[in-house]
Design a protein around this nucleic acid. Structure first.
Length: 687
RNA sequence: GCCCCGGUAGCUCAGUGGAUAGAGCAGCGGCCUUCUAAGCCGUUUGUCGGAGGUUCGAGUCCUCUCCGGGGCGCCA
């Protein structure tokens, strides 16, 4: 998050803050949503008083940013405002002003505010704040009476004061593999990431649509080969070259053998696809991933919209069948050095050998998407010379559909695996080609390569504008490779039959190991919890090692259990309190907090902030880190502070409130990750 | 060649332009008559790959560079 310098007082002063507003009769303050905003508001009030008194100028002041200091003895929260503001104040007054002096001025004002227990100026000009217990308890009360995720859904409204966000309609497409095999442990990362991302975006107030794009185009090479493999097995013939093999292929063949007779490969294709899609759906569900829409690529062809889209692109001048392909020679930083036009003399077979045009199946030249107009490094084929349409031809229609179909997505997020990295430029070109408008008048010099590629400044600018629009509306998130570690060494990703391990097998294996005496359902839950947490622990943007040895350990070192155990412990305390104290209403003691209580309270109240940031940068792993931190804070508190003290009911009431708040935050964080929050965890008393 | 990701403690990794860079694991030493010890507390560990730059301040931003992983099809 960047601190924006402001134009005037209206910005540095409250901005659009609306803390504690009511909307629809529902109190929006929850989970301390933005404890930081409440603090920020108090600081802004102090600054306003200083402005009124003429101590500081009333304009040109920077925005107040509240941050958490790394060192605990630097207080609960801090602001660097004085350091940033010093130069503005100095120039406004035409004299020197040092950050520390300015900080002292503001600190003096803040000391009269009962929200703060202590206000210190430190280092080069930080203002360190220790919050008063009453201030913290107000927020904890809200959090304690909340019910986890339900409340977090309001977090987006709180986000507004700090960052301007408006609720968007977001379509998130993830997993989207061919229906030619089970969901693999590789796709598992995308499944975990995509589903958790959707949870977070929802929590931040957006309307989210979860979508799976079924790559079932009848022209797909892989799908045809898959169908031919299944057919070969059913008909007892040898597999085609590079055909599909493995248990699941036989299983599909077996299932089809029992059904109505199939005559053609395309009948085999649609029948086996249906079976695979059903199996993928059930595997994903076992992994806690559910989609709103399963969108069939083939349905676009069937409806004729792909052909229509191609005609539209030709009319717009971004697709044509001239026998030439443009490539961009890119220099450092993606700058275009020069362009190359390659004459396309004929069709290229699957083996990559060029054939004379006369021998190509149809004799037609291919239809090109001129994606280089939008910065892609080479033009892409939409219709092959044999007349068949490519995958990106469907993508043109698919993206148009995603934008135009209700609820009319404001933004598309597409989650892709590392092998699709090269696809980003193409996708943006596809969207830009859809969005391009007629060029208007424009001026400016054209470079050599621009002259060759665009011919005119107005066309160049129209293409650049379309690409910009595409960048704003489509966000491609690439997740990186996962490496599985077993016995301390990288484990093979493939089984003996050559297929990548299935996600469902990973879930089952972990479940069985971790929960040997559990029921099928318990094992599935445990396997899912561990697998999801591990997938989400690390940034999706980094290759990471999935440590199977650690994942399958049913104990202390396993971070999943560490976090879940904290939740179970809280539930245990609350159950005990029910018996010991009952429903007796006692006002929580507003008194000196134990240091561990304070740390826990601050961590609990940090959740909405974490959710907000995660919804901004899509770094879902942050919530896994947060849940571990929160669990740690709780365990430390639990060990240091007795909660149920029959002789001290006010303190008991306060600590129970803290427990309930911690429970709400912890459960919410786990819910967002798609991991369960057990109310009890019994240690398996064995060996 | 170009693009993407990474390089932080012995290992796996967090880290929001801020103060003395943090966890977990591994190692060592303590703590259950007490709300669940799947827990807690203490202790050891750093040329943040390297070089410049931007500024009050850089692990974080920019440029260059070295090393590792991945990607560059009329496949998806």
């Amino acid at each position: 998050m960047t601190a924006r310098s402001s134009e005037g007082p209206s910005d540095f002063v409250l901005g659009r803050a609306s803390v504690g507003s009511r909307e629809g009769g529902r109190l929006r303050v929850s989970l301390g949503a933005m404890l930081r905003d409440r603090v920020r508001r108090q600081i802004v009030f102090a600054l306003e008083r200083l402005v009124s008194a003429g101590s500081i100028p009333g304009s040109g002041l920077p925005r107040v940013v509240v941050e958490a200091p790394k060192q605990a003895d630097h207080g609960d929260l801090a602001t660097n405002w004085a350091m940033v503001a010093a130069k503005h104040v100095a120039s406004a007054k035409g004299g020197a002003s040092n950050p520390r002096g300015l900080a002292e001025l503001v600190a003096g004002e803040l000391r009269s505010d009962p929200s703060f227990e202590r206000v210190d100026v430190a280092g080069p000009g930080f203002i360190n704040l220790a919050l008063s217990p009453g201030f913290l308890l107000d927020d904890l009360k809200e959090a304690a009476s909340s019910a986890g995720l339900e409340v977090i859904e309001d977090a987006g409204h709180f986000a507004r004061p700090t960052v301007e966000t408006r609720p968007l309609s977001i379509n998130v497409e993830f997993v989207s593999v061919n229906p030619n095999g089970p969901i693999t442990i590789g796709s598992g990362r995308g499944a975990a990431y995509g589903s958790a991302l959707c949870n977070v975006l929802t929590a931040a107030g957006h309307r989210v649509h979860r979508e799976y794009y079924i790559n079932d185009g009848v022209n797909s090479e892989q799908m045809r080969l898959f169908a031919e493999s299944v057919r070969a097995i059913v008909e007892g013939r040898p597999l085609p070259e590079n055909g599909y093999r493995g248990d699941y292929v036989s299983a599909v063949a077996e299932a089809l053998r029992g059904g109505p007779a199939l005559a053609t490969t395309s009948e085999y294709q649609s029948a086996s696809e249906r079976l695979m899609i059903e199996s993928q759906r059930s595997d994903l569900e076992a992994f806690g991933v559910v989609f709103d829409t399963w969108f069939s690529e083939q349905s676009l062809h069937d409806a004729g919209v792909v052909e229509q889209c191609l005609r539209d692109l030709e009319a717009k001048g971004v697709a044509d069948d001239r026998p030439v392909r443009t490539k961009l020679n890119l220099g450092k930083g993606g700058k275009v050095d020069s362009i190359v036009r390659e004459a396309q003399t004929g069709a290229v077979t699957d083996e990559g050998d060029a054939e004379p045009a006369a021998q190509s199946v149809s004799g037609h030249p291919p239809l090109w998407l001129r994606s280089t107009l939008f910065g892609d490094d080479m033009d892409r084929v939409l219709r092959r010379s044999d007349g068949r349409l490519t995958y990106i031809a469907s993508d043109v229609a698919y993206h148009r559909d995603k934008f135009n179909r209700p609820p009319n997505a404001d933004r598309l997020i597409t989650v892709l695996g590392p092998d699709h990295h090269g696809y980003i430029g193409r996708l943006h070109a596809v969207v830009a080609a859809n969005l391009i408008e007629k060029p208007s008048q424009s001026q400016g010099e054209l470079s050599d390569w621009e002259t060759e590629l665009y011919g005119s400044a107005s066309w160049r600018d129209a293409c650049a504008l379309a690409r910009k629009a595409s960048d704003e509306r489509l966000e491609v998130q690439i997740f990186q490779l996962v490496r599985f570690i077993k016995d301390g060494k990288p484990a093979p990703m493939r089984k003996r039959d050559g297929n990548i391990f299935a996600l469902i097998d990973l879930v089952n294996e972990i479940g069985r190991t971790v929960c040997p005496n559990g029921s099928q359902a318990q094992q599935n839950q445990a396997g899912r919890d561990v697998a999801r947490f591990f997938y989400l622990m690390r940034s999706h943007d980094t290759t990471f090692d999935f440590d199977l040895d650690l994942a399958e350990r049913q104990s202390d070192e396993n971070p999943v259990f560490y976090v879940q155990y904290a939740h179970a412990r809280i539930c245990g305390v609350l159950r005990k309190a029910e018996e010991a104290v009952g429903a007796e209403a006692v006002e929580p003691a507003v008194a000196e907090l134990h240091p561990k209580e304070r740390v826990l309270a601050l961590k609990v109240l940090d959740l909405p902030y974490e959710v907000q940031r995660t919804a901004e940068d899509y770094s879902v792993n942050r919530l896994a880190t947060y849940s571990i931190d929160l669990a740690r804070s709780f365990h430390a508190f639990y060990d240091a502070c007795r909660v149920i003290e029959p002789g001290d009911k006010p303190t008991t009431a306060r600590r129970l409130m803290l427990c309930r708040a911690a429970q709400a935050s912890l459960k919410a964080a786990l819910d967002l990750l798609g991991v369960s929050s057990p109310e009890r965890m019994e240690r398996a008393s064995d060996d």
